[in-house]
Every structure is written in C-alpha cells, then in structure tokens.
Design a protein around this nucleic acid. Structure first.
Length: 497
RNA sequence: GAGCCAGUAGCUCAGCUGGUAGAGCAGCGGCCUUUUAAGCCGUUGGUCCGGGGUUCGAAUCCCCGCUGGCUCACCA
C-alpha cells in the first residue's frame, strides 16, 4: 500500500537507473578523511587541501551545470560545490538524480565561497546509500544571528516513534542524547575514581523488592515459573556489600508497571550505589559532589536553567527534615500525630487520601502535595517516617523516623538514599509490617525476601545507599520538559497497521 | 482513570457558520557554472484518523471508536 506512494515509487525508479549506470547504490565502504566541524574549525590549515567527506545530503540547489548541497555528518553540516566540468558527465548525471536523504561521499578541495561559507569543491562524488523514503524537509535561515526554522518536524508522536528521523532532522535532539551519554560516562568515571566497582545484577528476579511499585511479570519456560522484571536492584547490591565488596554501583534499567507521564516511563534508568561503613550524612555530601561534578564537567557550570527557574547545584544544599518542611509550608506539626489525627489534618489541608493509606503514606501524601512542588533550589529532605521506608535504618536519635533523604530539585525528587537497615531482626519485622499493608490492599507493599534476610543474618556492615533517577537527572541538566525527550525510544502504544 | 485539545498531500499548515479539497516546501519536467528558506516557468500528488448518523449534499454538524499531546489523578 505504502509502496504505491508516488514519491517512493519515483525513488525506486531512480535506483534502477543508477544500477543501469553501472553504479552500486549500496556500496561497502568509503574513506572519510575529515568531518564537517573539523574542516570548519581548521579551515586555515585545510584551505586548498583535499578532503573526503561523507554524510547525508540535506539540501540541494541545482543551477544548470553546477550545484550546491549540504552534507550532514555526525558533527553537523558542510556545504559542497559541484560543477559538471569538474566531476564529469556521468558524475553530474548521477548527482542530478540524487535525493535529499541520500548518503554520499565527496572528495574535493576546501575553499570559501563568495559569500564566505566554507565549502568542499567536489572532484568526485560517490553514492553511499540511496534513500527511498522521503525525509521531512526542514529549512533554516539565519537572520541577525537568529536561526529561524521553517517547517520543523514537530509532531511529537512521529518524533518519538521515528526517532531516527527526529535525530536526522532536529539537531538539538541529538545534543540532548550526547549530553545524556556524557552525564553517564562522567558519573561512571567519577565513581570508578572513588573506588567503586561496577557490577551487574539480575533483571529477572523471583521476588521483586527494593522499591514500592507494581512489577512486570514474565515466564521462564524451562523452570515453569514466573519471574519479575526488577523494580530496583537494591537488595542484590546489598547482598554484595555482605559479600565484601565495599563500594558497588550499577546503572540499572528498572521496570515499573504503572502510569506513564512526563516523569514516568515504564522502563527507566536508575543508578544505585552502596558504600560500606558510611551513613546518610556522608551520602548527602557525596550527592552534592556528584551533581556538581557532573554539571561542571558536562555543562561547564553549576548553574542550570529548568523551565523558568535558575538553579544552582553548587554545594552545600539546604537540609530540612520532612516534618520541619511540612511545618514550614503548611504550618502543621505532624511529628507526634497518629493516623487518625493525620487524616483530620489532611482533610483540613484539602489533601485527598485513600482508605488503605497508613501513617507514613499519609505524611508522604501531604508532603508530595503541598511541599515538594515548592522546593526549587536543591534541598535535602531528611528523616522520613519509619512506616514508608522498610529498608532504611532507624534514626539514631528518633526511632519513629529513619535516616533517609531525598534531594529535591525544581520540585521533583531526583534521588533517594539512606543509612541502610542492617539489623536482620528489625528488617524481618519491617517486612512483616509490609505484609500487613499488603493485606490491607496496598499493592506496592514490599514482599518478604527470605534470602535477603539470610544475607543480613550473615551480617552487613554499616552501609549507606543511594539511587539516582538518571532520566530525571538528564532532564534537569538538559532542561527537557518530558522524560520522553531524554529516552531515545520512549514507550509508546504499538502502531497498528 | 478524568478533563481539554489535536489528527487534511512526504513535511508545515489553511479550509469561518455544510456545496464535492488548497498554499508553501519537497517531488516531477524545463531554464540557470558561487547558491544558501536560491530563483523563474510548468506540473503530479489526498480512503480530509476509522466507523456510523443527520442531510439533496459532510473535511466541516452529531454519536461511537483509534492515536497522540497537555493538565489532573495515580506513582518514591
């Protein structure tokens, strides 16, 4: 059906014509000597010199027996000038039937046109790959240094579904993903330098744990049993601390079977790390350092723009206990309230609750509704209610809260950390509490994990743990409004044809 | 899950209160050997998201559905 598309049909005919000319439209290699930006950056050295460039043809201006076109390679675009008497009759015949979107290689001499654009004067043209499906044509014009874009490929659905087109045609999209890669490799280098060991733990888990979320289920045929795609890798990394690795980390794809919106994709990247003999106070400084380091390395500054906010990631960040934060923004002191009292306060504050919510969840609800969105500059919220943190260690001075923190930036949490619970009996009791919540209808309550408990019984040293939502971190550092703009292939409903 | 908005040519869009579809770019045929949103002349191209309904007549009005976006809800 689509094959009947006239534009594709014409290009297929061109393919035949090219073959008739004795040219293979899909050859095997091309020796590229330079890339576009390199040529522009080193024009003084390269002027009059011969270079070979390769890339996708993105525009053509044909003028009788000569033509200009722009070639787009990994680094950007560069203009080429083609002249019939220079590349010969057959070369020019070929050039004339090339289309925007074709990959070509050009060998020629670097020069500057009359209007001052650095250009390659073609001596030879090679077709490297014929494109038979038209690309959206985006045109640009420079005016007073301002770039005006015409007919931008803007349909979000098509951009996400056909990311390959988005990347070809919208150069700023490519920038985001280059930065994403740099953010991750900068973090990895930083961690390696700090003595961390990068490890890999199971994605298919018999018991899911380490977070509160509903899982995806899959089936193993040979064992004839279900496995869960991990919602977190926390419990495995802690087993490694038990095993004697003192600093471990993993960039993990986690999977949560929940709603999708601009902050949630069903599969996402979490970087978790664990450090033996440290606590959450140490971890707070570490988080400040990591964010600041990455921003400095990748962006060259600690100051970032997020939407309309100007945010400075330079340490130290503000620290507020959860109860103090709630008091600051609502005037209510929830510290000693039981569930009944909390429900009353929530009603007064117009925060809606579900019947199955326990004390911890209610507090979190109030916080998430009334406080979190107002925390714009980096802020550590510390000391969470015990009930909502079954894997965190009780606070050394206050047994009703745990030693846990989340850094909030631009109204959104970007990480989560605690002094890890290593008392095996307490951990068992906490799991049991979770079972009760589960019985009450909380679908996200954690499962009892006997093997993990066995590991704690063997003994885990005092440990601090951290999870950073990489996608959200990339959103922050690249000022992207949606998680889909920082994931190359975001989850979409499958196209039905 | 709810509300709002959108879906028309390969792309970006116009088509008001119903009268059988239009522009720019791209494509195709010409002219043009330093252009750059190249230009000039000519020209092809559409299950107007899908299905029903109202009507002499529907891209347009009504209903149902599909897909997406935004907001809210949910969500560590």
């Amino acid at each position: 059906m689509e094959d009947f598309n006239q534009l594709i049909q014409i290009r297929k005919e061109k393919l035949d014509k090219i073959r008739e000319m004795g040219i293979n439209p899909y050859p095997y290699e091309f020796d590229q000597s330079h890339k576009s930006r390199d040529i522009k950056d080193h024009f003084e050295d390269l002027e009059e010199k011969e270079v070979s460039i390769a890339g996708r043809m993105m525009s053509v201006r044909l003028m009788g027996k000569a033509a200009f076109c722009h070639i787009q390679d990994e680094q950007g675009r560069i203009q080429a000038y083609i002249r019939k008497n220079e590349i010969g009759d057959q070369g020019f015949e070929l050039f004339k039937i090339l289309d925007i979107g074709d990959h070509i290689g050009i060998h020629g001499q670097v020069f500057k046109t009359r209007t001052g654009e650095i250009t390659v004067f073609a001596k030879e043209i090679r077709l490297l790959s014929k494109s038979i499906r038209p690309l959206p044509i985006v045109k640009e014009k420079e005016e007073d240094g301002q770039k005006i874009v015409y007919d931008q490929f803007a349909d979000k659905e098509m951009r996400y579904r056909q990311r390959y087109v988005d990347l070809v045609v919208n150069p700023e999209v490519k920038e985001v993903f280059i930065k994403r890669s740099q953010i991750i490799s900068t973090m990895r280098d930083f961690l390696n330098q700090q003595g961390f060991l990068e490890v890999e733990t199971p994605i298919m888990q018999p018991i899911y744990g380490g977070a509160a979320a509903r899982p995806f289920v899959t089936h193993h045929n040979a064992l004839d049993r279900d496995f869960y795609l991990r919602i977190a890798n926390e419990l495995y990394l802690k087993r490694l601390i038990v095993g004697g690795f003192d600093r471990v980390y993993e960039f993990a794809k986690d999977f949560r079977n929940e709603g999708m919106d601009r902050f949630h994709n069903p599969e996402f990247t979490m970087m978790e790390l664990y450090v033996a003999y440290k606590d959450y106070k140490w971890m707070m400084e570490f988080v400040e350092r990591i964010f600041n380091h990455v921003a400095q390395r990748v962006l060259g500054t600690s100051k970032i723009t997020v939407g309309t906010y100007e945010i400075d990631l330079a340490p130290p960040w503000k620290r507020l206990t959860m109860f103090d934060a709630i008091q600051e923004f609502t005037g209510q002191d929830l510290t000693d309230m039981d569930e009944k009292a909390l429900r009353k306060v929530a009603g007064k504050l117009h925060v809606e609750l579900e019947p199955e919510m326990g004390r911890g969840k209610i507090i979190d609800e109030i916080f998430g509704e009334l406080v979190e969105p107002k925390l714009i500059q980096p802020t550590f919220i510390i000391d969470y209610p015990l009930e909502m943190s079954p894997l965190a260690k009780k606070h050394r001075e206050n047994p009703r809260v745990v030693e846990r923190f989340e850094p909030i930036i631009a109204g959104k949490e970007v990480a989560n950390a605690f002094s890890e619970l290593n008392d095996p009996l307490d951990q068992r009791a906490r799991f049991e509490e979770q079972m009760k919540l589960k019985a009450r209808g909380d679908l996200e309550a954690q499962e009892m994990d006997e093997d993990f408990l066995r590991a704690l019984e063997i003994g885990m040293p005092p440990t601090a743990g951290l999870g950073i939502g990489i996608d959200r971190m990339v959103m922050l550092l690249t000022n992207q409004p949606s998680i889909r703009d920082v994931i190359l292939f975001p989850q979409m409903r499958p196209e039905n044809k």
